[in-house]
Design a protein around this nucleic acid. Structure first.
Lengths: 112, 112
DNA sequence: CAGAATCCGACAAGATACTG
DNA sequence: CAGTATCTTGTCGGATTCTG
């Protein structure tokens, strides 16, 4: 049992770490397949991506539907609970963008 | 030189990790002294608190003014740049609060 | 394609003791 | 009060190999 002294800690439990927020931010745009996520987040390893997706699933933020027909294929998308994070994710995105402009940092979309 | 593929990564560099967001969220309420921060974030060690405060200072998000007269005393507060994070911090706070209610988790303010 | 399993290193974080 | 210094531990994440 963990003790929370501030609501922010709760949010951090869910979106904390290096990858979770990134995954959620991409899924916010719409459902994505495993391979698509990998391409959108080029620096994540398969292990991390799978691990974080499982955790997000367990936390009820992400839904997963897999089919094996005609071939193996898995879609991930935000659950209703996950959708409630949209404003937060948007805020993180917007601030990052503005900060990039202020500091002259370049953001390179993985458009390859 | 780090490669950013998504603006969110930039935000994470600044508010990422376990303590930074927490520190910023408290400073958002107004200037605080070192000891006050420690009490508000009971689980942080002195080392971590100092280290994170130095980083936030270096990133230009937090300002520090120390006096030695009549006694040693240091105030930390958000810089103008740090203030731009206010909506983000508020978003994280609000979502955590709502999530706590939905999941029945109790948040215990360090008011003891 | 979408993973699981294992091994390993780096760094974040904790504990403790000491200082102006 | 507001730190610094040192040592140790734990967790996160990378690399690689294997599978239905």
């Amino acid at each position: 049992m963990k003790q929370y002294h501030c609501p922010v800690e709760l949010t951090l439990d869910v979106v904390g770490g290096r990858w979770r927020v990134l995954i959620l931010a991409h899924l916010k745009q719409g459902p994505l397949r495993y391979g698509q996520l990998r391409r959108l987040i080029p620096d994540v390893s398969e292990k991390m991506l799978t691990q974080r997706l499982r955790e997000l699933e367990a936390d009820g933020l992400v839904l997963r539907d897999a089919t094996h027909e005609p071939e193996l294929r898995t879609d991930y998308r935000l659950s209703p609970e996950g959708e409630t994070l949209a404003p937060v994710l948007q805020g993180l995105y917007d601030w990052g963008l503005a900060r990039a402009e202020r500091t002259g940092v370049v953001v390179t979309p993985p458009g390859d």
